[in-house]
Simulated scan of single mutants.
Amino acid sequence: MPLTDVQIRQAKPGDKPRKLSDSRGLYVEVRPTGGKFWRYRYKLDGKENVFALGEYPELSLADARAERDKARVLVKEGRHPAHVRQTERAKQLAENGNTFRQVALEWIASKEGVSDGYRAQLTRAFTRNLFPYIGRVPVRDVTAAMLLECLQRMERRGARYYAISMINWVSQMYRFAVRTLRADADPAAALYGAFVRPPVEHSTAMSAEEIGRFRAELSGYGGFRANVIALELLQLLFVRTVELRRGRWEHVDLDAAIWDIPPELMKKRRRHLVPLPARAVELLRELRAITGAGELMFPGLRHPGKPIDGSTLNRALERLGFKGFSCHDFRATASTHLYDSGLFRGEVIEMQLAHAEDNKTKAAYNHAQYLDERVGLMQWWQDYCIEAERKYRAG
């Protein structure tokens, strides 16, 4: 007769282990210590075997019968339940080792043809936005819902662009995981389109009057002097903000009035020469007295070994009353007025903007091309900005 829960609960231990039979090979072994353990007795290949199911009352009577039924199915298939359980445990341990964090770091390390900076960017993105929440989860168990929750955190702090990039990176990572047999599918694929990219805001060129106003306001700005110099240099040299921020003194020759930026510090990974007009040389000599003891032209105040943060100069620009502009707009401003002057050939302007590559291979790129014309261009642009300031002050 099948057991009842009351019978099992009231069963008293004896001097020796004893069995309380249920049905279909299921029984409870009552030990002298008082412990009660579920066992399933079965035959396979003519031999009797016993499979341990668990301990009562952690495993209830109903659950023990359900586990017994699962084991009976395996026996009918000619499989030992204990062997199947060992295989599943080994598989689970392997899955636990293949965490989201481990696989992500392997994917980042495996990427070929990318710079160390890009690899570091990926590592920071995953470490900040995903690892604290799903880093320890087996990569096969991560769901689209888990990823979405992480990405929504990013969106709430205003990093929607970054969240969109994150979807693409995670999708690449999962394709790597599938290829290395650690995942079956890409949960990030379901999230494409979950975040709408805001409309692109194109660069805005300052008018001549705004150029003059900017210079007038900058001369009276009470912020950190190195930041003031950085803003004026961005206007005069119209390099990309990141190129200015990462500038190093070893690449600047003030006597020759040239800034020779190496490929690893340029967006397009090509050496770029920046002729320095007189005012830029004057500013850089002043800056050297402030930061020249270090390697960086614009070190951060809190972390001198790293460049100033990318938002620092844009915030200073806003405080000057140019909220609608960004530092990148200095490039559009210079380009617009240089073209409008009609004095310089387009290829010379584009070369100085570090754009030139149309219909040319990188192997044929000559960083010193049109250098004499570019020297004249940079001096003309300095004079144009200074004259705009004079006219603005004159009213």
Rank of each mutant, 00 (worst) to 15 (best):
Tyr384Phe: 15
Ile211Ser: 05
Ala289Ile: 05
Gly135Arg: 02
Glu58Ser: 09
Phe344Gly: 04
Asp253Arg: 08
Asp69Thr: 01
Lys268Cys: 04
Phe131Gly: 01
Gly223Cys: 09
Phe325Tyr: 15
Leu338Glu: 02
Glu357His: 11
Pro187Ile: 09
Val281Met: 08
Asn49Phe: 14
Leu237Pro: 00
Gly342His: 11
Arg9Tyr: 07
Asp340Val: 01
Gln379Arg: 11
Thr204Lys: 15
Ala190Leu: 11
Ile164Cys: 07
Tyr27Lys: 04
Ala293Arg: 14
Gln121Gly: 01
Ala257Thr: 08
Asp372Ala: 14
Ala278Cys: 02
Asp329Thr: 07
Pro304His: 06
Cys150Leu: 01
Val170Phe: 05
Pro132His: 12
Phe131Val: 13
Asp358Thr: 12
Asp63Thr: 00
Leu148Trp: 06
Arg89Phe: 03
Pro17Trp: 09
Gly305Tyr: 05
Ala194Val: 05
Phe330Gly: 02
Leu191Trp: 04
Ala332Trp: 13
Arg175Glu: 13
Thr4Ile: 07
Leu148Glu: 10
Asn129Gly: 04
Thr361Ser: 14
Leu233His: 02
Gly46Gln: 10
His80Asn: 13
Glu232Pro: 01
Gln7Met: 12
Phe195Arg: 04
Arg245Ala: 06
Leu353Ile: 09
Val228Phe: 01
Leu254Ser: 07
Asp22Ile: 05
Leu231Ile: 02
Val281Thr: 12
Phe325Gln: 08
Gly113Glu: 09
Ser207His: 08
Arg179Trp: 08
Val103His: 13
Ala66Lys: 15
Gly97Asn: 13
Val281Gly: 05
Glu88Gly: 04
Ala120Glu: 14
Pro138Ala: 11
Ala66Ile: 05
Tyr221His: 14
Glu77Trp: 11
Tyr365Pro: 08
Arg213Tyr: 00
Leu231Ala: 00
Gln379Ile: 02
Gln382Phe: 00
Pro32Leu: 02
Met351Gln: 15
Gly35Phe: 00
Leu377Met: 15
Ser115Asp: 06
Gly292Tyr: 07
Leu371Arg: 08
Phe176Asp: 10
Ser115Met: 02
Lys268Val: 12
Val142Gly: 01
Arg175Asp: 13
Ala82Asp: 10
Ala190His: 05
Ser110Val: 03
Arg39Ser: 05
His272Pro: 01
Tyr339Ala: 14
Ala94Gly: 04
Phe330Leu: 04
Met351Asn: 10
Gln235Gly: 12
Asn129Phe: 06
Val30Arg: 02
Lys391Ala: 12
Ser165Asp: 15
Phe195Met: 06
Ile258Gln: 11
Leu44Cys: 01
Ala332Gln: 12
Ala125Glu: 13
Gly324Met: 04
Phe330Ile: 03
Lys306Val: 06
Arg124Glu: 05
Arg245Ile: 03
Phe37Gly: 03
Met297Ile: 15
Asp22Phe: 07
Ala188Phe: 08
Ala293Tyr: 03
